[in-house]
Design a protein around this nucleic acid. Sequence first.
DNA 1: CATCGTTTTAAACACTTGTTTAATATTCTT
DNA 2: AAGAATATTAAACAAGTGTTTAAAACGATG
Lengths: 204, 204
Amino acid sequence: MKKDTTTEEKIKEAARTVFLTKGFEGCSSREIAKAAGMNVALVNYYFRSKSQLFQLIFKAAMEDFMESMIYVFSTDQPLEDKMRIFIEREYDFLAKHPELPNFIINEMNREEACASNEHSVILEKIAETGIFNDCQKAQAEGKMRKMNLISLTLLVMSNCQYPIMAKNLMQSIHQLTKEEYDEQLVLHKGYVTEMLVQYLFPKQ
Amino acid sequence: MKKDTTTEEKIKEAARTVFLTKGFEGCSSREIAKAAGMNVALVNYYFRSKSQLFQLIFKAAMEDFMESMIYVFSTDQPLEDKMRIFIEREYDFLAKHPELPNFIINEMNREEACASNEHSVILEKIAETGIFNDCQKAQAEGKMRKMNLISLTLLVMSNCQYPIMAKNLMQSIHQLTKEEYDEQLVLHKGYVTEMLVQYLFPKQ
DNA sequence: CATCGTTTTAAACACTTGTTTAATATTCTT
DNA sequence: AAGAATATTAAACAAGTGTTTAAAACGATG
């Protein structure tokens, strides 16, 4: 232990940024070492292999990916408000970590990787917030549209994550600058919130 | 010219499947050659380089990606019906080509690649179907919610493509088999259709 | 200061990468 | 059938890959 950021942490940080922007196959050990200002051998000295380092980064990224959800769901507010706040927070979060959804989804599609892992833990953590019970209750009382968990999460994730994931595609198709698209995202967040709330919590 | 499928086409076919499942960086020239049952040198003999072959595949994939849209939009039906049919067809299409959206979006995020290309042609092709004019007209008549093109496409694409893209992630989180998730997709398509139509074409 | 364990380095390992070359096989043309 | 053009091959190229090794630099403890 010497400075604030030890060599091990420097490598981990560098690995995170490189892995998240380029993916596991899109970068080399040497690239990570260089980004950390270190020798290549040090990467394996601390983390044994590129794969092991990656798994570490991936796991942490996955937790980040789920973090904001859990926070909001734990609050004690009407379900409809939770939904609004959640979307608000999710758009904020993804604006800060725009590479995350693509990274997670891509690496989940690599056969070798992460596929068989214990990602059901995530679901349990979310379940601990009581959000799922709240939904079931609201559905039973007729305050919320009846729908299983999978579609519920799909609806929310689709409308929050896709607009970030497809950023470059949409910019290219619609000929927009980054700034213009970011403005568009703010507008879109409003539409998404309105649409989801109206559909999930129908009035009358 | 010899058989039905010439060597050149065999390589192109193999390249398509390999590129689409593994991405540009996720595979090697030799892997493509092997998949086509050919020698490595033949890949470059016909296509000069891995990059040039990729650009060919990517361009074709992009056109596939947009094909189904154009077909539906060209039909002569009420806008609301068009929307329903479009979602139906899009889910069908993506069931047959589940790797497409991820492929397109990922490769659009690779700095070297495809970014500065002429993807605005796509928009023009869609514009030629008259769908955008129809929307503007419907919006002016108060039959359709006022919203710019970007958000409109975003809403539809998000809810059609994301559920396919996140297949492995969702399966892992919710502990579902492929068959269970495919069933879920059918259900979800219904929700998405209802939600989008209700939101875009409000009654009263 | 000498010795120990830890950290860092340069160099090498065997292997894969994209691409090229030069020789061979095949096909087409006359 | 002979020769020209095309198609296919094995082999080589230099550069890059993940990983290992063995030596050097470092920091603490005696």
